[in-house]
Nucleic acid binder design. Structure first.
Lengths: 241, 241
DNA sequence: CCATCACTGGATCAATGATCCGGTGAATCG
DNA sequence: CGATTCACCGGATCATTGATCCAGTGATGG
């Protein structure tokens, strides 16, 4: 019982024939203005809602309201609220562009994939708060497959390949999670609170207080540096063996 | 451990006066056997509850019940349920042993810290599902401070130090999160489902299908390998500059 | 003309986070 | 020594939410 990819019963031959005759006379054809509410529409609206109002505001009722239906209806297309989140999350991963596998250097491709991965999550900060679930959607799997494949061309295989791919994935995920968490809406207030907290205890956390709050604002640079370290290590291992 | 915290009307001034005169006659002093429910007791019980029953079962009511009090009472010691989680989470970080800073090699200490960090989170798998919040508790800060300080002795400073410390932290966090997520109670069932899922689509995910499910069972080895890669990169950078 | 089936939603339930408000006893004060 | 304060407790109660029951509705095919 997959998704009912049912086509709205709108595009009948009758309609098309009339349109062929005289497009302008055709009544707006009351295009069943709410196309019968597909799983796709639900997920799309869920993502919009999450982007605009955040995870806490995602409610079956609110979601239904935005879709112009009753909340009960959602449960025909989806079994639980978690389903909605699973689908929305995988949709976010779908935004990650797969690098054109033409580049001869695996490192270039892997870097591009990881950066895109991170960017997608940061475009939808709520996604990082929702990662504690098995990631088995088709879009994640496709990206993971790409990562594995590209590392395979670097000469890795078996458990080592698996471990290195996981290491990269875990690094992006952890980084995005920490950044999205540390960068709430009221960034200014949060930062000031953190700084004050640290300064007040600068005796206990001297190094921390000196460097500033745990994480600065040069998120991109910091991430890139860590990724380079990791990839340096990986590359060094690609040679041997 | 039920019964109300009600104290038998025993501890009157009269009693105390008698006690002063003769210690042996003093009734066991009914030392309010449930110590008046401190924040510490709440947090300890919350962790026990989380360990035993998981995040979903953590309810203010259940927690109160286990503590032998009314749920309302908790709100005197704590402002919200999130407070409880914040405190519990920091408590988990408190389990991470700070390596004895005697070792001359920063890499040894850092490795030990990171491994301990990971172990603590995996001992309390729910903790990984709850990371999407600012980590500002004293225990996290202490560990972060240690990490920064040790990297400072390696010659790093400023944004670079901050970036590398974050990279390491993000890697542990991401790894623990992914492992705790992929290792649910019904590990067997989950693994089989994942394997079947992959095999059925082995045409789409050839490399993945060949290597096995996204992540094997040699979690420790995989983590250690990734950590070594990362630290190799860090160490290489410690030299220059 | 009817039966089926994809699809919808009002009413309703149970669980939960949180608050109102009224206790209770020990310590402190005058 | 009695009254008052204050740390601490909890029953009743609210609003919100995820989810289900069940009664529809309208198009399609027989």
């Amino acid at each position: 019982m997959e998704h009912p990819t049912k086509l709205p019963a709108v595009d009948t031959g009758e309609t098309r024939a009339a349109a062929a005759g005289d497009v302008w006379l055709r009544p707006p054809r009351a295009r069943r203005e709410t196309p019968p509410l597909s799983r796709e529409r639900i997920v799309a609206e869920a993502i919009a809602l999450l982007d605009e109002e955040g995870l806490a505001r995602l409610t079956m009722r609110r979601l239904a309201e935005r879709l112009g239906t009753g909340s009960t209806t959602l449960y025909w297309h989806v079994k639980t609220k978690d389903d909605v989140i699973d689908l929305a999350l995988d949709e976010v991963f779908g935004e990650v562009a797969l690098p054109d596998p033409g580049d001869p250097s695996w490192r270039v491709d892997v870097t591009a994939l990881i950066l895109g991965w991170r960017a997608a999550m940061l475009r939808h900060p709520w996604s990082t708060a929702v990662l504690a679930r098995p990631l088995m959607g088709p879009n994640v799997l496709t990206r993971t497959e790409f990562l594995h494949a590209r590392l395979a061309t670097a000469g890795f295989a078996g458990p080592e390949l698996s471990a290195l791919a996981s290491a990269l994935a875990n690094y992006v995920i952890g980084s995005a999670l920490m950044q999205a968490t540390a960068e709430p809406a009221d960034e200014e207030a949060a930062r000031r609170a953190a700084e004050r907290h640290l300064r007040e205890r600068s005796d206990r956390y001297p190094t921390l207080a000196e460097t500033g709050p745990p994480i600065g604002r040069d998120w991109d640079d910091a991430f890139a540096l860590g990724l380079d370290c990791l990839l340096d290590g990986v590359q060094a291992r690609a040679g041997r063996e």
